[in-house]
Simulated assay, not measured.
Amino acid sequence: MKKKVLYFMPDNPMSGKAGNTTRLNYMLSYFNENRDLDVTFVSLRDWGMWKKEEETLFYEKFPNIQLHLLDKKYKKSFIKYLFLYKIPYLFKKNSIDTTSYILRKEFSDIIKKSTFDFAIISYATWGRLINELSDSTYTIIDTHDFITAQSRHKCTIGKLFQDEISILKQYDNIWTYSVEEEYIFDQFTNKKVTLMPVSFPENLSEKKTEFKYDILYVASDNPHNIKGIQWFLKEVLPLLNNVKVHIIGKIGKAIAEDYPNVIKYGIVDDLQEFYNHARVAICPMLSGTGVKIKVLEALSYGLPVVTNRRGVDGLINKKNNGCLVSQNPVEFSKAIHQLMNDHVFYENVKMQGICYFKENHNPKIEKEILDSIFYKIYEEKNFN
């Protein structure tokens, strides 16, 4: 008998190449290929800005997964929007909760139609959806991020932390991708915490003989990336001589000024082409939490990465991992120049990155963890 899995993620897997959608597509691919699992994927139509054609694309890419699109705000009726969303939201008790009565009601309707063996809810901010689930369901909170650290400027830290932990403690299993967050969640929840090794397929090509792109930066336009690239363009770029920076993704829209040695591409169809022919990747990151997907993606292609301290958050190894780390603009630029001009140094950093990636972010490792959850726990709980 197939094990029934409910997977909630508000984002749209068909839109963009941001870290959250990259991760989402990996999970959906795992579920789609696993014929022993009957998976229902629930996303938010308004939050994910789903288009009709994207629903068709979803079924073409993941034919073995059922798709449900729900609404958080329900703006079709102003009265419902006002009384079932806007007013209750002003009086919510949990400071990180972003669920709404409308969403919980629609989510509950799905639950009533089937009995699920497992339920995975993404982000602690949507964690209250657990209240709609059966007690027999094995519940997993896929945290993605430490919300308290992300929102610390908006509210009292004590209140944020208490509210986040209170949500996490309701779940049977807490997933995290960061060793720092694993420690915090383990210390304060007394629940099972699983460190998920964000994985990518090895994208190592044959020895590169030609570099079309000196410096590559791939990013979405979230506030942390905007802050980081602004710092890079203002403080580091003037120190770089005879190099070109190639910027890919929505982050390009946040760069108003044009620079003679900066090329903006927007979203590209073939990101692999850039990674395969780039010399160095950068990740200017002055704020933010958790593992940076773009750092791991670059390492999967054997690219050395120059980044700030926040760029290696969550990584198991902070040194000898393929990343050169500096908060100082001069040192940041010197690291880039050394990688560009010192072949022996470049190869050494590159090999450190490849070894770190293979040991810690191999897809085989993550598949074994996922399989153990959906098979071993199923047997232990005797879901029948």
Rank of each mutant, 00 (worst) to 15 (best):
I110P: 03
G127H: 06
L339I: 09
C355Y: 06
K381T: 07
S300H: 00
T307H: 08
G311M: 11
D145F: 10
T40Y: 10
S166Q: 10
M27K: 00
N225L: 01
A254G: 03
L57R: 13
L84M: 11
K207S: 12
G48P: 01
N131R: 12
N64F: 02
K80E: 13
K212A: 11
S108N: 14
R309W: 00
V349S: 05
I336Y: 01
G158Y: 12
V5I: 14
I111K: 09
H343L: 14
N25H: 03
P304L: 01
F274C: 07
F357I: 03
M1V: 13
Y123M: 13
Y89Q: 13
K76P: 01
R128C: 02
I247G: 03
K112C: 09
I110S: 02
K52G: 10
V306S: 07
N382F: 06
P238T: 10
L70C: 09
D38Y: 07
L168K: 05
I130A: 03
V344E: 14
Q150I: 08
K105M: 12
G302M: 05
L324P: 05
I247A: 04
V245W: 00
K169S: 15
D313R: 08
N12A: 11
E210S: 15
K86A: 10
N328P: 02
A219V: 06
A149I: 00
E210K: 15
D221E: 13
S220Q: 07
I248F: 09
